[in-house]
Computed example of a mutant assay.
Amino acid sequence: MKKKTRPPLLHTDPDNRPLQSLAATALQLRDAMSATNHSFSIDLDPVIELDGELLIRRTPVSDRIRRVVADPVVDTTVIQPATRWPEHLRSAIHRMKPWDPPQVHNAALDALIEDFARDIENLLGTIRFAAQVETRPHDQANIWADFVLTSRTHLARLALTVDD
């Protein structure tokens, strides 16, 4: 039986529906989280293609993280089981909400976060390893959270930042 493979992720591919859906949901999430003097940013970059699941089994956690996180890593929290990473994402985003009147209610924000997490898994595949990393970014972000997500086929960094 021939193994089914995904096409490579191309940011310029207009037919990449999972990527289009992820981008649209990211924009909705950014708009919902932004307010006067509160600029929210969400980036899934870099995304590195992998060759099978060997990276997850054989590579130490610190090496996996260094492949996608250039900033100095202060602390790493491995999310176990990996299927709980959307809960950690939701908590991180709620900690970043603007203080002035919210653009959306908590239930609507939770739905957007759930859609965003689902879109990431549609793009990368089922997340098999997840970690939240504490970094000291070089930019002027006031609040930040970084996640390293690994599926069978991709390794990625998800970065959330708030600038005032």
Rank of each mutant, 00 (worst) to 15 (best):
S39R: 12
M33A: 00
L54T: 15
R58N: 14
L29F: 00
V47L: 09
T25L: 13
L10V: 08
A32N: 08
D15G: 11
R17N: 06
S41T: 13
D31K: 12
N37R: 14
R30N: 13
G52F: 05
D31W: 01
R17C: 03
R30Y: 08
E49R: 15
S41C: 10
D13C: 01
H38Q: 00
L55G: 09
L19M: 01
F40Q: 11
H38N: 07
T25E: 09
R57F: 09
A23R: 12
A26F: 03
I56N: 00
D43V: 12
L29Q: 02
S39M: 13
D51A: 15
P14W: 05
D51Y: 10
D13W: 03
S39D: 13
N16V: 00
S41D: 11
M33P: 05
R17M: 05
L27V: 12
E49C: 01
L10N: 05
N16R: 04
R58D: 09
N37E: 05
I56R: 02
L19W: 02
L54A: 15
L10F: 06
G52S: 05
I42T: 11
F40M: 11
Q20K: 09
I56A: 06
I56H: 02
P46D: 03
T12Q: 15
P46Q: 03
L50D: 02
T12N: 14
R58V: 07
P14M: 09
S34P: 02
S39G: 06
A32F: 05
Q20A: 12
S21V: 09
A24L: 15
L55Q: 13
E53P: 04
R17S: 05
L44I: 15
L10H: 08
L44T: 14
D31M: 04
L22V: 09
N16A: 05
L29V: 06
D13P: 07
L44H: 10
D13M: 04
L19F: 03
G52W: 02
M33C: 04
P14V: 12
R30V: 12
D45E: 15
D31Q: 07
Q20T: 00
A35H: 08
A35D: 10
I56S: 05
Q20V: 00
A23D: 01
F40K: 14
L55R: 13
